[in-house]
Design a protein around this nucleic acid. Structure first.
Lengths: 358, 358
DNA sequence: TTGTAAGCGTTATCAC
DNA sequence: GTGATAACGCTTACAA
């Protein structure tokens, strides 16, 4: 069956390089060169080829190319179990930022979702070992690993985002969780607060460890012990932020000597917490100051407008993409680097001096 | 150079089918069969092959497979310019839902971002015509098209989500924008409201047309004319929801005879609008009722808790994926179908009878 | 500068 | 039931 017949096939596959070559009256390899290295071919023939390609509406087959070259142009991004939180747009923003950077460099973004089950891990590993991915950006804490195969052994450049995994040899891009929380805690101390309430993410989680450490360090600086802060939450995931906040309200209410300042480790927690606290008849910030982490735009419209530590997602995405591209070009940095992009506190009306100290 | 040496190469490429064949003492083609059609090969040799494959940690090369078979296993999802809104998690939820369905069917999800520039359109078309994608799910209004190539001509199954493009021949999955808004408008009329304020998305946009029509229809049923509703917004994108709401506050304030009910076409609009309205000293719902569209979880924690029409993103994602898979199997439905998954009104405290009617 | 030909790692069509 | 062998669409030595 002739190639030219393919218009009438049931599976039309578009014009091939061979078609372009025929139309331009040159060899197929010349077409390849003209398209890839326009410099290494006669100006005149190149024009002929370009014309032929345009006329046929030719698009090179990316898979054939990748197969031959041995280097796919797909980057895999491994996202945590759930892509969405209550209000923050961290994941979509990161996705967008990374995608933009990668496209500019000629790569495609394939998304993979790392649930905690074997199926999804196996799926990811197939992508990695099956020659589909050229590199990986991971937003989850654990490198996929199942029956002997581990992402670490796939020979692929891997960059971690949001979590610092540089100790484990994976170059990372994070924000300064600890320092940012330390700074805002310091600010609360400066306002006169002496008793704190901390809304925690899952205990042991990187973010929670870092952020809590920030609080404790600030307190220590002020001569306060860890008993100046009572922790709430700790068992639920960040995706459950609203629930953590709500349960926090109950914990808070039950407290004998109530804290005057609340540090929430996500906007979701703070938002539901504030809502519950106000229902209790307590005022924010008069009775209790609140500050949180993430920087969701919606915080500006909360009652009252919520102070929040804004994560530099855009920049982190760019940095991660750059790091990965660099690793693809020149191999991974040794030792694994950790790029930290600072967060920025957005001060709004939810923080004030405690009523008692007035 | 021997294949076995590849451990020491600079670009280790993992074990090949040939390696498995050698280890199992069979021909390559037998390995291929054993892995793909385990039924069509002797039980004993299959076991040998499986063992060899496992021992070597063999993962088939997906691109070589796709190239040979002529059918890639990647689905492309085309997302609108900006992935994130102020508070709603529509895009990430859709992404997650679709990804889940597709993975189950053996496909990968590649994301493409349709900005309004030629570069991104060309990029998408390259993916479509370049044999990378097997099918497309599009969440944007316009099919990419640049210098002669149009996604419509790529010979790929396409399914539209959120927007009804079935008239243009693209099977679609949408929610019942119009009916849902009509129902809630009816409810407001029932509460006694007679003057309405409508916060609009970009004029002419599918969603805006549908939702506004819903309002007008409900008013007509109640014997009210289109003059019973004043429109605000209309020039900004949904991504700018917060700003639309804020500008809406100014419009509202300037009104002589103020409406008592506000219908916002996104949660973002409603959230910033409520915030602004309350700053004006007006009470919600006593002075003005508010209802919006999207169903962001954060609405539950607004002041007051916001009634919102919840989009069935999960179901729409599943439906879109199912439709696409069906189209891949058996070709697109003719005429193009339009699946509508109903939205659900979540009633909270932001709606009440107008003060005047009490 | 251009053409020839040998792969890239699979799958599928044949014979055996 | 299994084994050669020819594709899939492209790139790249190497030869001309």
């Amino acid at each position: 069956m002739n190639r030219k017949d393919n218009v009438t096939q049931d599976e039309p596959s578009g014009p091939l390089m061979a078609d372009v070559a025929r139309l331009a009256g040159v060899a197929i390899s010349t077409v390849s060169r003209a398209l890839a290295n326009p410099g290494r071919v006669n100006e005149k023939t190149r024009a002929k080829i370009d014309a032929a390609a345009k006329q046929l509406g030719y698009t090179p087959n990316a898979m054939a190319r990748s197969l031959r070259v041995g280097k796919p142009n797909t980057i895999m991004i491994i996202l945590p179990g759930s892509l969405y939180y209550g209000a923050s747009q961290i994941i979509p923003q990161v996705l967008q930022s990374i995608n933009k950077s990668l496209i500019k460099a000629g790569y495609n973004l394939m998304i993979a979702n790392l649930d905690r089950d074997e199926t999804s891990e196996r799926y990811i590993l197939d992508l990695a070992f099956g020659g589909t991915a050229r590199g990986v950006i991971i937003l989850s804490s654990k490198l996929p690993e199942v029956d002997g195969r581990s992402l670490a052994q796939a020979g692929l450049p891997v960059v971690s985002m949001l979590l610092d995994m540089s100790d484990a040899g994976t170059p990372s891009v994070v924000t300064n969780d600890r320092a940012a929380v330390r700074a805002v805690s310091r600010e609360l101390v400066g306002l006169g607060h002496r008793r704190f309430f901390y809304l925690a993410g899952p205990e042991g989680n990187y973010h929670d460890v870092e952020r809590y450490a920030g609080v404790v360090e600030a307190l220590a600086e002020a001569g306060l012990g860890e008993d100046a802060v009572v922790r709430s939450g700790g068992s639920l995931d960040y995706q459950q932020g609203f629930r953590i906040g709500l349960e926090g309200v109950a914990d808070f209410e039950a407290l004998e000597n109530r804290p005057t300042a609340v540090i929430a480790t996500s906007d979701d927690m703070a938002i539901s917490f504030m809502s519950g606290i106000r229902k209790l008849g307590l005022r924010i910030p008069e009775d209790v100051s609140v500050v949180s982490f993430d920087g969701s735009p919606v915080c500006a419209f909360c009652t009252p407008p919520l102070s929040t530590i804004e994560q530099p997602v855009e920049e982190m995405g760019q940095a991660a993409a750059a790091l990965l591209l660099e690793a693809i070009e020149n191999g991974p940095p040794t030792p694994a680097s950790c790029t930290v992009v600072p967060s920025r506190l957005i001060t709004r009306e939810s923080m004030a001096p405690p009523a008692l100290s007035r």
